[in-house]
């Protein structure tokens, strides 16, 4: 039973499946994705089942989440961000609930996998490029040259801006993956320490409460990280989309 702290990230096929030659097996990851989507969708629809003028507790929470994301989109993109609101909201809710679901004991953290976070990041990267060219045409390239740049600095600035632009999907995807992976390894390592120290007997066993206390603290921290990383991911998506929608800088 006591395996590696990395075992929690292992994928296991629950149902072998192949679509047009691609491996589309239903794994534990896929099951958790389906669970996250189902729980969140049903939860929000249940919360809004009456859609009262004066909201109850669950409806208040749903409205709170709605307004939280709506304000994020409005503050960062402005009126032009309205069409992207459903996407940002879905993104935020998916990552938030996936992160929190990973905190459930024996749970699988969907967002701790590079394949998932990079899929999101690359999709957002392509979305930004598509929106940018659709709205501004070739003028979108002026993104790489901030107005007011001194002429002798132009080549340098353009290179820096291009590198910064193309590193966006990498940083966006790796940030979420690294945060979730590191946090969950840390929790498992401390949990392993509790068992191994207790099993060691004598004085060391007496000190086995130390990693336990540490793990309680890390668990609280990880709950915070789960929410913060979902927020950061959604916020950065807004910031990047703002570049494409309002080409001003």
């Amino acid at each position: 039973m006591a395996g590696s702290p990395l075992d929690q990230f292992k994928l296991s096929n629950k149902l072998e499946l192949s679509v047009a030659g691609f491996d589309a097996s239903i794994t534990n990851s896929a099951l958790w994705m389906i669970g996250v989507v189902a729980v969140t969708s049903v939860g929000l629809m249940w919360a809004m089942r009456r859609a009262d003028m004066v909201p109850g507790r669950s409806q208040s929470m749903a409205e709170l989440l709605y307004e939280f994301v709506a304000n994020m989109v409005k503050d960062n993109i402005g009126a032009g961000g309205r069409p992207f609101f459903p996407f940002i909201f879905s993104l935020f809710m998916f990552i938030l609930i996936a992160n929190l679901a990973g905190m459930v004991p024996y749970g699988f953290t969907v967002t701790s996998h590079l394949a998932v976070t990079m899929t999101f990041a690359i999709f957002i990267f392509l979305l930004v490029i598509a929106v940018g060219f659709a709205r501004h045409g070739l003028h979108f390239f002026s993104l790489f040259l901030p107005p007011g740049t001194p002429v002798f600095l132009m080549p340098l600035i353009v290179v820096i801006e291009v590198i910064s632009f193309f590193s966006r999907p990498v940083t966006l995807g790796v940030r979420l993956f690294a945060n979730m992976t590191a946090g969950h390894i840390l929790m498992k390592v401390f949990a392993g320490f509790i068992i191994s120290m207790a099993a060691a007997g004598s004085f060391v066993a007496f000190l086995s409460w130390l990693p336990f206390v540490a793990n309680v603290a890390v668990t609280a921290l990880e709950l915070l990280v789960a929410a913060v990383q979902a927020y950061v991911f959604a916020l950065l998506t807004c910031v990047y989309l703002n570049d494409a929608v309002n080409l001003e800088h």
């Binding site: 994928l11 499946l17 394949a115």
Partner: peptide, 11 residues
């Protein structure tokens, strides 16, 4: 592969 496919479907 399977993760990307199922992420696309579920999302």
């Amino acid at each position: 592969g399977p993760q990307v496919i199922w992420l696309v479907i579920t999302f």
